[in-house]
Amino acid sequence: MGFKLLSKLLVYLTASIMAIASPLAFSVDSSGEYPTVSEIPVGEVRLYQIADGVWSHIATQSFDGAVYPSNGLIVRDGDELLLIDTAWGAKNTAALLAEIEKQIGLPVTRAVSTHFHDDRVGGVDVLRAAGVATYASPSTRRLAEVEGNEIPTHSLEGLSSSGDAVRFGPVELFYPGAAHSTDNLIVYVPSASVLYGGCAIYELSRTSAGNVADADLAEWPTSIERIQQHYPEAQFVIPGHGLPGGLDLLKHTTNVVKAHTNRSVVE
């Protein structure tokens, strides 16, 4: 069995187990497998329904001669939608809004960016022009300005110390501490036991640490421990890039980060 097929099978099995364990909360999309990078042309966006009122959005972007996937989250909030992270750029984010209108038909009224990198804030200006209120932590807003990236308009308070959590509509926002970046936030959907790890969490097929220019490698494993301790009931975990899975993604990420750190020390 090929690795790609095995990865998709694991996603399907995880979703099936969740649907059985929580039949009222989960209505997993039966329309197909989780979209992969090879299936999404740059400039297009796919939506994948995880649970009743919960979707991931998947886009792709060219970077350094390669094409990478990027995940975000959409959560229903009454007759409105909360968006977590842009679709990595203005063109993708405009396509995301169009796809949401086509498939869901509810307005996106608020959006949260989970850290300051372009795959999370690139497209904020498109959201703002569409009347979406954009939010991020003060740290993310400051770092985005320093980096020359787009800056969300509103500040999220109460997320300055490791372990801080605040309720934001249908989700809980959690600051686990520094990891992929010093400002990275985690998003949890309690009604569906869905954990969105953003770039602080890796997919299972990833074996290298990737972009760690703004990471705190020493603190990252401790931050992941905080996530595990705060959300032990999480059933569906979405990484910032690639295929979702279960809580095993947290341990896998820790292993990859520690291996990278150990290699760096040896070198």
Score class of each variant (00 low, 15 high):
residue 182 T to Y: 14
residue 216 D to P: 02
residue 108 V to R: 03
residue 182 T to I: 12
residue 217 L to K: 04
residue 242 G to C: 06
residue 195 L to R: 00
residue 101 E to T: 10
residue 30 S to I: 09
residue 79 D to L: 08
residue 39 E to V: 12
residue 108 V to F: 01
residue 73 L to N: 00
residue 93 T to G: 00
residue 55 W to G: 01
residue 171 V to D: 01
residue 30 S to H: 14
residue 132 V to F: 03
residue 13 L to D: 05
residue 64 D to G: 14
residue 9 L to S: 11
residue 240 G to H: 07
residue 227 I to C: 02
residue 220 W to R: 03
residue 185 L to V: 10
residue 187 V to C: 02
residue 1 M to K: 06
residue 254 T to K: 11
residue 198 G to Q: 04
residue 207 T to C: 06
residue 14 T to H: 14
residue 33 E to T: 07
residue 229 Q to G: 13
residue 83 L to A: 05
residue 108 V to D: 03
residue 75 V to I: 08
residue 80 E to Q: 13
residue 41 P to K: 12
residue 267 E to V: 04
residue 216 D to G: 06
residue 76 R to H: 07
residue 182 T to E: 10
residue 236 F to P: 01
residue 169 G to W: 05
residue 54 V to P: 02
residue 256 V to D: 03
residue 215 A to E: 06
residue 144 A to G: 06
residue 10 L to A: 10
residue 143 L to Y: 11
residue 69 P to H: 15
residue 230 H to C: 05
residue 53 G to I: 08
residue 174 F to D: 01
residue 132 V to M: 04
residue 231 Y to S: 01
residue 174 F to W: 02
residue 40 I to T: 15
residue 259 A to C: 04
residue 88 W to C: 01
residue 34 Y to T: 15
residue 94 A to W: 11
residue 211 N to H: 06
residue 1 M to G: 05
residue 131 G to P: 05
residue 75 V to Y: 02
residue 113 S to D: 02
residue 267 E to N: 07
residue 225 E to H: 09
residue 42 V to P: 15
residue 249 L to G: 01
residue 162 S to A: 14
residue 183 D to L: 01
residue 71 N to E: 00
residue 84 I to V: 10
residue 115 H to C: 00
residue 148 G to E: 09
residue 99 E to Y: 12
residue 201 I to R: 03
residue 117 H to W: 00
residue 16 S to R: 08
residue 52 D to W: 08
residue 106 L to W: 08
residue 65 G to Q: 09
residue 138 P to K: 07
residue 32 G to P: 08
residue 50 I to S: 02
residue 90 A to M: 11
residue 35 P to I: 12
residue 60 T to S: 12
residue 6 L to R: 08
residue 15 A to T: 10
residue 246 G to Y: 07
residue 103 Q to E: 14
residue 48 Y to P: 05
residue 64 D to T: 08
residue 155 S to P: 12
residue 82 L to F: 07
residue 161 S to R: 14
residue 128 R to S: 10
residue 172 E to H: 05
residue 39 E to H: 10
residue 84 I to G: 02
residue 211 N to Q: 12
residue 117 H to P: 00
residue 222 T to C: 05
residue 109 T to C: 05
residue 196 Y to S: 00
residue 132 V to D: 03
residue 39 E to Q: 08
residue 199 C to E: 00
residue 224 I to P: 00
residue 129 A to C: 00
residue 148 G to T: 07
residue 171 V to E: 03
residue 117 H to D: 00
residue 125 D to L: 07
residue 8 K to W: 14
residue 199 C to H: 03
residue 117 H to Y: 03
residue 95 A to G: 10
residue 236 F to V: 10
residue 227 I to R: 02
residue 146 V to K: 13
residue 206 R to V: 15
residue 266 V to T: 15
residue 162 S to W: 10
residue 103 Q to D: 13
residue 56 S to R: 15
residue 151 I to D: 04
residue 67 V to S: 15
residue 231 Y to R: 00
residue 129 A to G: 11
residue 91 K to L: 14
residue 262 N to E: 14
residue 257 V to A: 03
residue 149 N to I: 07
residue 138 P to S: 08
residue 158 G to S: 09
residue 16 S to M: 05
residue 77 D to A: 07
residue 170 P to F: 04
residue 121 V to M: 01
residue 122 G to W: 06
residue 108 V to A: 08
residue 22 S to I: 10
residue 141 R to T: 06
residue 67 V to G: 15
residue 261 T to C: 06
residue 91 K to W: 13
residue 203 E to P: 04
residue 129 A to N: 15
